[in-house]
């Protein structure tokens, strides 16, 4: 059966919401553990921006679905198989180079995507993007600076950043894969073609890694499955912590 535009839009909002929500949760785990106070604050600020964006998408997803589910219902009461984020964002935090390399790869994809979504035929998606693009610009600047600092820093920081890039690269393919959800929405001018976004990602990654004296890993096998709800072993533990309160005390507020 063919997917309706409404079903596709609901799924698309979930994807955008889940990517931001899960990365936000991972970054919030750094709270109180940052290598220095300023960085601790920086990561939690970024987590806050991402959760704000996640809220917008999940609110809209609930609206589009029309079954009365709130952003909290979607964030806290869905099962692992119903989450459609890419695997990249659910991976453990690793060391600081690993966290920053993931942020950089995510931002280098996220910024051109949000810039393109500003032109969406769906006014709400365009409005969310118009707001997010300012925050993501600032985030990409920070994460790119860190890649250069690690790569062009000491032997150890260089090696850690390079190791992180190699470990993460296989998870970047999923950021650009599309299926029926995008196909239906692209036809209606609601979501952009991913080819120019991949080109912008490649250009940014190449430029920053060159300045950082880091090597871009070769494209090879790419992980997939997150968009279909098939997650890595990290996801269950993350959800157990993130959803604990609403699972134990449904509807709890403060």
């Amino acid at each position: 059966m063919k997917m309706t535009q409404q079903e596709a839009l609901f799924q698309y909002c979930l994807r955008r919401g889940d990517d931001n929500l899960i990365l936000s949760h991972r970054l919030s785990e750094w709270c109180g553990h940052g290598p220095q106070l300023e960085e601790d604050i920086a990561l939690t600020n970024r987590a806050l921006d991402l959760i704000g964006q996640a809220r917008n998408y999940l609110q809209y997803a609930g609206e589009v679905e029309g079954k009365g589910r709130s952003e909290d219902d979607l964030a806290y009461m869905r099962k692992e198989r119903d989450f459609v984020n890419v695997k990249l964002v659910e991976l453990h935090n690793g060391d600081y180079a690993y966290t920053m390399a993931r942020n950089f790869l995510y931002d280098a994809w996220h910024l051109p995507l949000q810039q393109a979504l500003m032109k969406s035929a769906d006014t709400q998606l365009a409005a969310i993007a118009g707001k997010a693009v300012k925050e993501v610009t600032y985030q990409l600047k920070t994460s790119a600076d860190w890649m250069i600092r690690f790569g062009d820093g000491t032997e150890e920081s260089h090696q850690r950043a390079q190791t992180a890039l190699h470990a993460l690269w296989t998870y970047t393919g999923e950021l650009f894969t599309t299926d029926e959800v995008e196909a239906v929405l692209q036809k209606a001018g609601i979501v952009p073609d991913m080819a120019p976004i991949k080109a912008a990602f490649d250009a940014k990654v190449d430029a920053v890694l060159a300045e950082a004296t880091l090597k871009r890993p070769a494209d090879g096998f790419m992980m997939s499955g997150g968009r279909q709800g098939k997650h890595s072993e990290h996801m269950g533990f993350l959800l157990a912590e993130m959803q604990y309160l609403q699972r134990a005390y449904p509807g709890a507020t403060w």
Binding site: E38, I41, A42, N45, D49, T142
Partner: peptide, 13 residues
């Protein structure tokens, strides 16, 4: 500038 992020989302240190 000490940090690009500060005590709230809207501020730098």
């Amino acid at each position: 500038m000490v940090s690009a992020f500060g005590s709230t989302a809207c501020k730098a240190l």
